[in-house]
């Protein structure tokens, strides 16, 4: 029941943000025109969407197995390294320094950004790129998200890592769940507390930001807006005690890799090269070969 309430609130707030942004950045006329051509637009990027759905389904269906593999078989707990790496880089705890700036207003702002701002940041590019005349940017976005999520999940399986709030309640505060305990019902549905390296909040946000730079000529205003949101999301993860500085750096690096993959590869191209590879393997060995 609590989950439904939290979810409804999320839907209302994010929908309001999306409508506003669409009206201002895309414009009603362009949006209506795009909706008329929704069929060819969706057909143009059906493969990347299929890939994203496959990764999400895989995630959803293997959650129990992956968790068991991560915690009971692989058991690579890297939490102490992240803690000490942060201290070694700054000589102090960057998360604790951010939290020392704590005020009620700042906490409310970062909670808002972490939950609603993040959802908005991830969803708006779908609308914006859908309204363009070509679907290349939308494809890039979907491929980049897929790569991002896929690589992130591999890391989550390989590494057990707890965030600052979970390691040391004396140094760090779990501000998000203190300010808004019910949000845990939502985040629990999506993730576990052992998955903090890398920060997918950061990497998906940074992916949107980097792609906004790629498309800055088509949506000049979106580039600075996404910059503000993405950087705020990165800071919010640390301020709220959820991620280490190292997670944020790793998340940003993952975003770069994902954007590179998104811009330079298409699902079609990847499928073709996989097929060619297997065809080459499947051919009978020629006379010269052993």
């Amino acid at each position: 029941m609590a989950l439904v309430e939290v979810l409804l609130e999320l839907v209302f707030i994010v929908a309001a943000m999306l409508v506003t942004a669409t009206l201002v950045l895309v414009g009603p006329r362009r949006m209506v025109a795009a909706l008329y051509g929704f069929r060819w637009r969706l057909e143009a990027c059906v493969l990347p969407f299929a890939a994203l759905v496959v990764v999400l389904l895989l995630r959803w269906s293997t959650q129990d197995i992956v968790q068991r593999l991560e915690r009971r078989v692989l058991r690579n707990n890297i939490t102490p390294y992240l803690f000490e790496l942060d201290q070694a880089l700054f000589g102090t705890d960057p998360v604790a320094v951010l939290q020392s700036l704590q005020t009620d207003v700042l906490t409310s702002f970062f909670v808002f950004i972490y939950i609603y701002g993040y959802a908005f940041l991830l969803l708006f590019p779908f609308i914006a790129y859908f309204a363009l005349d070509e679907m290349d940017d939308l494809s890039n976005l979907v491929v980049a998200f897929t790569a991002n999520y896929g690589i992130g999940l591999v890391c989550y399986t390989l590494f057990i890592a707890f965030g600052p709030r979970n390691v040391d309640p004396l140094l760090f505060e779990g501000l998000l769940y203190e300010a808004f305990p019910q949000s845990r019902t939502l985040t629990n549905e999506i993730n576990q507390n052992t998955n903090v390296f890398p920060s997918l909040h950061t990497s998906l946000s940074m992916t949107v930001f980097f792609l906004a730079w790629v498309t800055r000529e088509k949506y000049p205003l979106w580039f600075p807006i996404s910059a503000v949101f993405a950087i705020s999301v990165a800071f919010s993860t640390m301020y709220l005690g959820i991620h280490w500085f190292s997670d944020v750096i790793a998340g940003t690096a993952l975003a770069l890799v994902s954007v590179y993959i998104g811009v330079n590869y298409t699902i079609e191209g990847i499928l073709v090269s996989i097929r060619q590879f297997f065809e080459a393997q499947g051919q009978p060995p020629n006379a010269d070969g052993e």
Partner: peptide, 18 residues
């Protein structure tokens, strides 16, 4: 190496370990 539960599971144990 001091092992204990994360603060989510038991904040008191995590504080003692810290």
């Amino acid at each position: 190496t001091i092992k204990t539960v994360p603060a989510d599971d038991n904040r008191l144990a995590a504080s003692i370990a810290s």
